[in-house]
Amino acid sequence: MKTINMFRILGMVALLAAFKASSQTKTHVMNQRLSVITIGADNLAALRAFYVNKFGWTPVAENKDIIFFQLHGFLFSLYGSNDLFAHTGKPVKEKASGSVTLAYMVNSKEEVLALYTSLKEKGVKIIKEPFTPPFGGHFFLLEDIEGNVWEVAYNPFIPLDKNGEVITHKRIDHL
């Protein structure tokens, strides 16, 4: 008798658990992270050469259609513009230069100036000379050979860890 009651109780517990699980809707959310940033390239070979020769980056994977660079925590890829637009289903339009900027953060004004000198010596197009914004830090802006805008910056409100990865963005509501 006790065994039958025990099975009945266990069966009811399992049935209740199954009912509860089936009646709850599971919500899926996207974690706050990026995995890949892809830039459409009008001239894939030339843009690849820019990132390899001017920035000193090494591709981790590539073929005739796409090139991947491993950055801290995500991949940066170059993909032919027509192929990218075909993939996304978006019509080919003139690039809106400056509608997106990419940022390379460093830990000091001195690092900004060292990169500025190095990139300028390599013939990289500087579109805004080094400057100090009102809130502090130090920045300059450059373009790759297809007009993609990069900001090289030391920003006191964006601390980096020992690997150069962003830790957080400090509060700026007082600015």
Rank of each mutant, 00 (worst) to 15 (best):
I127V: 14
K2N: 09
I4N: 10
G11Q: 10
L47N: 03
I66Y: 12
T168N: 07
V52E: 15
T101P: 00
V52M: 08
I66C: 05
L10E: 02
K120P: 00
R48Y: 14
I126Q: 05
V112C: 00
K54R: 14
I167G: 01
T38E: 13
I172G: 02
V112E: 01
H72A: 14
L84Q: 14
D42H: 12
A114L: 11
F19G: 05
I145N: 15
T38I: 09
H174I: 05
G73C: 10
P133W: 04
A49I: 04
F7V: 13
D42W: 08
E129G: 01
G80T: 12
F76W: 06
V149S: 02
F140M: 01
T58P: 02
L15G: 04
F140I: 07
N148G: 03
Y51C: 00
F69V: 11
R171C: 00
L16A: 08
I126D: 01
F76M: 05
K170F: 04
M105S: 04
I67W: 07
S118Q: 12
R8D: 00
E129Y: 09
F157S: 01
M6H: 07
K122A: 05
T25Y: 05
R8I: 13
A17G: 15
K109Q: 05
L78E: 03
M105T: 03
A17M: 15
L175H: 06
V124P: 00
N63S: 13
L16T: 10
G137M: 05
F50C: 00
K90E: 12
I37Y: 10
T3D: 07
L102G: 04
V149G: 00
N163K: 11
S23V: 09
N82K: 15
V152N: 03
I127W: 05
L44F: 10
A103H: 06
G80W: 06
A18V: 10
V112T: 05
F76Y: 07
K90M: 13
A17H: 13
Q70C: 02
Q70D: 14
T132L: 04
Y154P: 00
N82W: 08
S23I: 09
G73Y: 14
K120I: 02
A153Y: 08
D173P: 02
R171N: 13
L16G: 03
Y154M: 01
L15V: 14
A41V: 08
R8H: 07
K95S: 02
K26W: 05
L175Q: 07
L71P: 01
L175E: 04
H138L: 02
R33D: 06
K122T: 08
A153D: 10
Q24H: 07
D65Y: 14
E121V: 07
K26T: 15
S35V: 08
A49H: 08
I67K: 03
G80F: 04
H72G: 06
I172E: 02
V29N: 12
S35E: 10
D161H: 13
K64A: 15
G89F: 09
T117H: 11
V100A: 06
P159F: 14
P159E: 11
Y154C: 00
H72C: 03
P59F: 06
D42V: 12
S22V: 09
H169E: 11
K170W: 05
K162A: 15
S97C: 05
